[in-house]
Design a protein around this nucleic acid. Structure first.
Lengths: 351, 351
DNA sequence: TTCCGAGTAGTAAGCGCTTACTGAATCAGC
DNA sequence: GCTGATTCAGTAAGCGCTTACTACTCGGAA
């Protein structure tokens, strides 16, 4: 039915092995033969059978990318950057294809996808986004990853810290430092009643950002009441920001600033503040994290911390494809404070 | 090295064929045997070799999804919805995996990815987003799709009209009607000088939305000067909105409304208006299209047209998996006007 | 008791490709 | 002109799985 290697070989008057060698180019073939084979490929519109070659060569050209939420631009950018390194004419030989797997932040699906990728004999797997900090889950995850590595799959972590006993290279963001600088920025503006809406608990990203915030507070001698002004959202979404802000406002009516776990959460915070009749930044300052494209378009423009998603994603993609695992351990990308109009000095004390 | 079917068979004391049958469940196997096999699979941590089974069975469990820009939430939502139909415990037998391919709107990459998917012997391919209306490209695309279909790959179109001579099912959005209703909404508010920032030319989505807009204008007897107040963006992005708005403003200082090709473009339009010192909606009304999640969080909240991305994506996913091609032709999803605060009556005429 | 047809399990022939290994030229060096 | 290296192409043995086809067992109808 479909055109096979043998058909091409017959057409070109050579053996199947020669055609294979021309196509893979890892063995000397005379120029004239090569031309003839290529012509036959063209004429017959031959397309390699991926599964067959994966089986024979025990390698596949599939790379898995695990993301928490593909509809979230944070992961969209990351995935896009990873994919920019694949396709034709990219490092590591032939074209690769990225399989983006949407875990939805579910532990179970994370593991399931890993098995599915092992089943595809993926060449590499890139785990993105903060890791879940449940020892039990980490153990299960490590076990799966160990199996994958044993099967020859390269593992790359992007946006999460390295795993306890694996040597998979990790790319991380300086979330802690970014959060710290952001809080310092708020403090320097004069804010003292700063609410913090953290992401879901038991996530590395959540913890690191919160740690940075706490560190800045502590350095300013304000560490004491921090807990009271911190709430945890159920996800990194708008609802977390909205509800978190309302909760904070109830807890501390004198709130002058809200720091959100990320830009999307900040959007929800802004909505809640507006619904309560508070102006940004006149009454309350708001800041996000990540500097997603829309941050510059909110009103007022959102102060946030830029995370170099594109660079990191591309880097992860390259690491995944590099035939020789450099295993350079952890690379940390810096984060940058982006002060914009949503933060300003707090309003003068009301008499 | 890796555990194979034979290993499992040996462990369970049966033949490889039996193990295969237990795993695929399309042949009677006695309960006790099944239990024994499953236990062996468990103990050996056996994971099927996907490529091998794809080769032998001449089918793969990979589904390709072509998107224009994975970092755009529009496609992110669509891709997420498609994937929600795959994975374990979904229609069409075993777990499938979605390969999301980022074409970046490039014709060449669109074709390349299609070849790459053919190479993987994908079970189905879902093409999302507006199609490019270049006869030459359509021809090339159709040829590739015909080859894919000949190879047994199901084709599903989502968000684009059916192809000339293919019977691939298509899911479309009522872009035309949505745009028409949106323009009618503006007209009913009293706007007459309505600028339109269209998407890139030669895209079906661009054309349909523009047609709807023109139709509403014509029905109101305003069809005449429509061209003068229409600009085309180079992409569906913020820059298109920003630059398009500045161009419109130069062309018609008395502009009272800007309709954008989509929500992201509208964001750019808002930014340009603000930079020119114009208030929304007091001086100029703005509307978008798609109703992406952030539309409700802009200031003021963006009037837009809701497009049921999640439903459509899930539908496309189901169509792609359904073993028997229903080939129900074209299904059109309705779009809904979402009037919000960014549109209001035009300011009173200045004397 | 014989025979037949369910119901199960095994055998073996590929699926289309890669890649050692082998073989046939060609060619430089003496 | 002969030898040994070198270059290029063919042969064939799988890679791990699926699936006709065959073979056996067993209960019940004849």
């Amino acid at each position: 039915m479909a055109v096979t290697l043998a058909d091409v070989a017959a057409r070109a008057g050579v053996s199947a092995a020669t055609v294979s060698r021309v196509l893979n180019g890892n063995y000397p073939v005379a120029g004239s033969t090569k031309t003839r084979v290529l012509a036959a490929v063209e004429e017959l519109e031959y397309v390699v059978n991926g599964p067959a070659s994966a089986l024979a060569a025990a390698t596949s050209d599939l790379v898995g990318v695990l993301v928490n939420d593909i509809a979230d631009p944070f992961f969209g950018q990351l995935a896009g950057a990873v994919q920019s390194q694949m396709g034709p004419g990219t490092p590591g030989g032939g074209p690769r294809m990225a399989i983006v797997c949407n875990t939805g932040g579910s532990r179970e699906r994370e593991l399931t996808y890993l098995t599915l990728l092992q089943r595809q004999r993926a060449a590499a797997v890139i785990l993105t986004g903060g890791a879940i900090e449940d020892p039990e889950h980490i153990e299960a995850l490590s076990a799966r990853l160990r199996r994958l590595e044993a099967a020859g799959t390269r593992i790359v972590l992007c946006g999460r810290p390295p795993l306890p006993d694996a040597e998979a290279p990790a790319i991380t963001f300086d979330n802690r430092g970014g959060a710290q600088r952001l809080t310092e920025h708020m403090l320097s503006l004069g804010h003292r009643a700063i609410g913090y809406i953290a992401g879901p608990a038991a996530r590395t990203t959540t913890r690191h950002r919160l740690e940075g915030h706490r560190a800045a507070l502590a350095a300013a001698g304000l560490g004491g009441g921090a807990d009271r002004l911190t709430v945890h959202g159920g996800a990194y979404d708008r609802a977390a920001g909205y509800e978190g802000t309302l909760a904070l406002l109830d807890r501390e009516p004198g709130l002058t600033a809200v720091l959100a776990a990320n830009d999307t959460v900040a959007l929800g915070a802004c909505a809640a503040l507006r619904d309560r009749g508070l102006r940004i930044p006149d009454d309350v300052s708001v800041a996000g994290f990540d500097d997603l494209p829309f941050a510059v378009d909110t009103t007022p423009a959102l102060t946030t911390v830029r995370v170099p998603l594109t660079d990191a994603g591309a880097h992860a993609g390259r690491l995944a494809l590099s035939p020789d695992a450099p295993a350079e351990g952890v690379v940390t990308y810096p984060t940058t404070l982006m002060p914009r109009a949503s933060t300003a000095p707090p309003p003068p004390e009301k008499p």
